[in-house]
Amino acid sequence: MLGWSRAYPETTGYIIPTLLEVARRSGDESHRARAIRLGKWLLSIQNADGSWNGGKHPSRNPTPSVFNTGQILKGMVALWRSSRDTVWLDAAGRGSSWLAVGMGSDGLWKGGDYRSTGTPSYYSHVLWPLLEVAAERGDDQAREAAARGARTIVARTRGNGVISGWSFQEGAPAFTHTIAYTIRGIQECGRILDDRAMMDSVTPALDTLVRRSELRAGALPGAFDEEWKPAGDYVCLTGNAQVARCVLIQEARSPDLRLVSAAAKMVDVVCGHQRLQSPIAGIRGAVGGSAPLSGAYMRFRYPNWAAKYLCDAIMVLSDRLEKEP
């Protein structure tokens, strides 16, 4: 709320596919141009070893980051698919090679991650772009390594559907933001690997999230502990939109308008908190980290990724609704 922070390479990377999709739908080429500009900036700050650093840019203590590199790969792949310009695929390849080198035999990483000593389960959101790059480059070795990682994470699923280690900090309640990262990563890995069991593994967690959301008119509690006990009385708006997106992926596999309804309500809640009018131009259209804004996730901030995930969810939801006669 005190103005824009420094640039954030991680989310800059994964906002690119959203901008390209908006351009495709709207025909407004300015979105594509913006996506390319973001991509070029990311190329300019890529490390020689192919990685990208963590945190904001410029960083006082630049350290290569597994998670951030993974998220930026999404932007690179999207730009490659949209333009077929090899500069993007080459950059993605270098990033992906750096990720592959750091992987252990279980397909995960030790170190190079955010706030954690082990590899958190939401790193499924790194394995997904790794698989996307592997698919584009025909890299079977990277594919196998990422598949191993995804299976390691799926094996952490508990009887109640919770996937251990899906929070930022081990043992702490997980924001719906990282819960959705984990689920989405597994869903996408399962899709690329054509592994139905992997995709099914997140069904119990999604069923619980849908139910919890429905009991509160689409407003999921912002965080849950590993027994599904809500932590705090706020909504993590980013997570709400992300979970809606995951529910729609699930629904696409097994159509059921009840799930579409649940997702629509989650999206409605986020829309209800979008700032459509503000004297501050930087806030207009923004979505807060939490509702209320004082909630624990991104307190008093409007993260760019909250708006990104809302856009993504709205686009997929409207596609789904348009399919209905």
């Binding site: 429905e214 308008l257 009840r258 309804s261 309500k265």
Partner: peptide, 14 residues
């Protein structure tokens, strides 16, 4: 069977 909840506005409109 899967429980039904209050319909979202968009689904009700549909």
């Amino acid at each position: 069977s899967r429980q039904c909840f209050i319909m979202a506005a968009a689904i009700r409109e549909l």
